[in-house]
């Protein structure tokens, strides 16, 4: 009896896979973190939508509201709807094993977009397509060290606590300034990757320590807030206090053109096309390295004006 059931299930599964492979339009679920991190994430969502349109993909989009439980519920509903594949931008790094196990059992490949996860079983997902956050932090750290001549009093604006880019960029930045003992981070707090908190934190920092002459913001939105706080404190951002950040959104390039932001390491959000291509490859049995790296460039203020017209986000 039991064996019969297994055979039947197996047959059904084969049929399902065969149907999935032969079907022309793929149905793909995308669980976004929640579009709550400003321009960068908006650009990523737009890129996924545009790529879905171009490639004739039936896209099911769920806004995760910055909550893991919402994303987990989204994944379960994707399984229930029988999607062909899932793109996941995980809001936090841990706690995904159980739901990914369910995806695996349902034979639905999962590609991680723009962030990685920590899991004991790498076979639970196809691969992650991200920038190398550590590298981004490191490049910014090295650039700042050279700019400041190896000596600076630095304030750091951290991202959402526990988020992958926040942890990695912090680590990378620390590596970048490690060989310069004069580079000291005196204050570090979370600005939750948004401008309002970035402004409030910087406002308090400037009063706590008047010697701060460099700011490392882990994303552009916080840098925009920090620049305003610096101006309101009667100092010149970009001159009295050197500001560097990561992401490379359009407002950041505009700020660089104005001279209020000194350098930014790009973190390319246009992941839609490569995300779908990888996912469809995986559906058809192709294998990928666990980490598909997006290459990012570092831009200085002097390059901003020239680069501005070509920026897509």
């Amino acid at each position: 009896m039991k064996r019969k059931l297994v055979v039947l299930l197996g047959l059904a599964l084969c049929l399902f896979v065969a149907l999935g492979a032969s079907a022309k339009t793929y149905t793909i679920g995308f669980a976004q973190t929640g579009g709550n991190e400003g321009a960068w994430r908006d650009a990523e969502t737009a890129s996924v939508n545009a790529a879905a349109k171009d490639m004739g993909i039936n896209l099911k989009f769920v806004d995760g509201q910055e909550k893991q439980e919402v994303q987990i519920a989204a994944l379960r509903s994707f399984i229930a709807q029988g999607v062909d594949g899932i793109l996941l931008a995980p809001v936090v790094a841990t706690g995904w094993d159980e739901v990914l196990q369910e995806c695996k059992q349902a034979n639905i490949p999962v590609v991680l977009l723009d962030r990685g996860i920590q899991t004991s079983d790498d076979s639970l997902y196809v691969c992650k397509i991200t920038s190398d956050f550590v590298q981004e932090g490191k490049r910014v750290g090295e650039w700042l060290s050279k700019k400041m001549g190896g000596k600076a009093t630095i304030a750091e604006l951290e991202g959402t606590p526990g988020a992958d880019p926040a942890i990695m960029r912090q680590k990378g930045f620390a590596e970048g300034i490690a060989s310069y003992p004069g580079m000291k981070i005196v204050l570090s707090q979370t600005g939750n990757f948004n401008a309002a908190d970035g402004k409030q934190v910087m406002e308090a920092f400037l009063k706590a320590n008047s010697r701060i002459n460099a700011v490392f913001a882990q994303n552009d939105d916080m840098a925009m807030g920090a620049i305003q706080a610096i101006q309101e404190a009667g100092k010149r951002p970009g001159k009295d206090i050197v500001v560097v950040s990561i992401d490379g959104t359009r407002p950041a390039f505009e700020a660089m053109a104005k001279g209020t932001l000194n350098a930014v390491c790009e973190c390319n959000p246009l992941l839609g096309k490569i995300g779908f291509e990888t996912l469809i490859g995986a559906i058809n049995g192709q294998t990928y390295p666990k980490w598909v790296i997006q290459t990012d460039g570092l831009y200085e203020a002097s390059q901003a004006k020239a680069a501005l017209p070509t920026r897509k986000y």
């Binding site: 951290e158 606590p161 204050l187 570090s188 707090q189 934190v201 920092f205 706590a208």
Partner: peptide, 10 residues
């Protein structure tokens, strides 16, 4: 914020 307490504790 002014005291710069560790994020984990705030």
């Amino acid at each position: 914020l002014t005291r710069g307490m560790p994020v984990e504790f705030t």
